[in-house]
Amino acid sequence: MGIIDQINKDFESRVRLGIMSVLVVNNWVDFLELKEHLGVTDGNLASHITALENKNHIEVKKEFIGKKPRTSYKVTKTGKEAFIQHINALGKLLN
């Protein structure tokens, strides 16, 4: 298996790379925080979050704070492992 085979297609998008980077170093991050960090539109962020959730890379928590809905995200254990493997493969490729 070559280095290129260790690069995960799930993280090829710059937005998904950003989402995972933020979530790997934080516990729960809400939608607005992610949007501000990444500087993307609601729709763009939502579509990438859905893709990562469908691959079980992130966990979604929906709750109400008072009467306002709040959606937060956390990287899963398998998501973190896959992302670290992806980053390590990119590092090997650069060296």
Rank of each mutant, 00 (worst) to 15 (best):
E53N: 08
N44D: 05
D30T: 04
K55R: 14
T76L: 09
I19W: 00
E53P: 00
I3F: 04
E36M: 09
N56Q: 15
I58T: 05
K77W: 09
G79F: 05
D30L: 06
V22M: 08
S47A: 07
E33Y: 02
Q6D: 12
R14H: 10
N44A: 15
L34G: 01
N88V: 03
V22H: 01
N44Y: 08
I4Y: 12
R70W: 04
E59G: 04
A82R: 14
A82C: 07
I84H: 06
H37R: 11
L34F: 05
F83E: 01
F83N: 00
K67G: 14
L90C: 05
I65S: 13
T41Q: 10
P69I: 08
K62V: 10
E12A: 10
T50H: 05
I49S: 00
E33V: 12
K9L: 14
I65G: 05
K55Q: 13
L90K: 03
V60D: 04
D30I: 04
N26Q: 09
K35N: 09
S72Y: 04
G91A: 06
F11L: 04
L90Y: 01
K74L: 10
V25K: 08
V75N: 00
D10C: 07
K77C: 05
N44V: 15
D30Q: 04
V40D: 00
Q85K: 15
E59N: 09
I19M: 02
N56G: 13
R14S: 11
G79L: 06
D10A: 14
P69Q: 10
K74C: 10
P69T: 04
E53W: 02
K92T: 01
V15G: 04
K74G: 01
V60T: 13
H37Y: 11
I58H: 02
L93A: 06
D5M: 13
N8S: 12
F83V: 06
I65N: 10
L32D: 14
R16W: 00
I65T: 15
F11M: 04
L45E: 03
L23E: 02
D5Q: 13
I4F: 13
S72W: 01
T76Y: 06
N27K: 11
A89F: 03
K35H: 06
G66C: 13
H48R: 09
G39F: 04
A46W: 02
F83P: 03
E63Q: 15
L90N: 01
K67Y: 14
L17Y: 11
F11R: 01
D10S: 12
H48G: 05
G79M: 08
V60C: 08
F64N: 14
S21H: 07
V22A: 11
F83K: 00
I84M: 13
M20P: 05
K92L: 13
K67P: 10
F31I: 11
L45Y: 03
L38Y: 02
G79S: 10
G43H: 10
A46I: 07
N44I: 14
I4H: 07
A51R: 11
L45C: 10
N44T: 15
L93H: 02
R70D: 06
S72R: 12
N95R: 08
I58K: 02
P69V: 09
I65M: 11
I4K: 08
